[in-house]
Amino acid sequence: MQKQEMRQGINDSIPIILGYLPLGFAFGVLANEAGMSIIQATMMSALCFTGAGQYIALGIMQAGGAVFTIILANVLVNLRYLLFSTSLVPYFKGQVPTAAGSLLSYGLTDETYAVSMNRYQSHPPTVSYIAGLYLSSHTGWITSTLLGATLGAYITNPDRLGLNFTLPAMFICLLVFMTRRKSDVFVALSSAFLCLLIGYLAPSTMGNLFNIIIATIIAASLGMLINEQH
């Protein structure tokens, strides 16, 4: 373990945890309302670590849906991680042992992906960095769920603090840092446009996040064409 790398990972997780706080908290509160115990809500955050998927589970539970429906919806929502994880493989090669990389990938989320990819543009990945970033983010998610499930009734609106904008703000900043090549800007704009267009034309994709997958695949392919011509 390299202390410096791990510390850097933990440092980089601070904005993520700040953003998870209101989201995990709200999940804890809502899970309670949907009939989950404090232990179940907290364990779900520990075992699943999939914000969108967990919220969808609550929605289906409250609509009286079946366990099978929840799992199927989660298959769709989590498919995007296939893309994320695959795009990390070239970075891990020769830097991160496969066993450690696979195990730690448990902690791969939209946010940890965004932050770590930004880091890998200038520093090679290390097991210590990934462990620091992922485990600390995951701990934040679990803790905020526990807080929400136990203290939910006592806390009034956390939106007053503006924390609901933490994750959007983080995505904006990381997007700015990561679009270096002209082709990146083109890919990013196409992807944003396609994602909204698909969500507009097929509203169900807004819920299962399939619009992200389709937009990413098309936009990345467009990037290849653009690049080819130069």
Binding site: M178, V187, L196, T216
Partner: peptide, 13 residues
């Protein structure tokens, strides 16, 4: 191109 595309979609949403 996956990372910029994903980040941009997430930002837009």
């Amino acid at each position: 191109f996956v990372a910029p595309a994903v980040l941009s979609s997430l930002t837009a949403l």
